[in-house]
Amino acid sequence: MSPIYARMSEVVLNIDVVLNIVKDELGLDLVQDESAIEGSSLVVPSESLLSVMEVLRQHEKLKFRVLMSQTGVHRGEDMLLFYHLHSYEFSHTICVLCVVPAEGGEVDSVSCIWSGADWLERETFDLLGVHFKGHPNLRRIMMPEDWEGHPLRKDYKMPTEYAGIDNTPCSLEKLDD
């Protein structure tokens, strides 16, 4: 890694501090997520996501007042949900990983903690089909309301037709007609 990028690790939070705080507050034993290339990351089980997030936001040593990004990755049977949090007070960031099943996966919505999560979760729902419990307005955001399927899933099949518009991949035979 370039020496220029190495400087960024100064603002990286020590993950053990976070793990201890969560343990003190909630009595949960969380594990670190090793797959993060940069920065600290922790895995949270989906049923305790909301309470952990609340601690991360409220605890005076953490103060993660901003949800920067919320997204998901469809990997095999699993849906990996990533939450990137940031604190302007301490200028540190953390990534929270939450794994739910890809089929019929459900997780608590964090839009009651961060208003900005509203649209981010709508996008994840729209493109990946994750259901967020307690979301005030869980509708499609990018795709049309009557679209079938969730495009960013790995098992997604392109529809061959939408609203009367032919969408089959172009082939030479078709061009000849």
């Binding site: 993060a36 920065g39 990004s69 998901g72 990755v73 990533f82 960013l152």
Partner: peptide, 30 residues
């Protein structure tokens, strides 16, 4: 692995989240 990188664009910091499963193309770009 996965990474979330922020840079300052004119419309604020653009966050690029990339998840990689070791293949020749990204697994997910957000």
């Amino acid at each position: 692995g996965h990474i979330y990188v922020r840079t300052e664009t004119p419309r604020g910091d653009a966050g690029y989240f990339i998840s990689c499963d070791g293949k020749t193309s990204p697994e997910r770009v957000k």
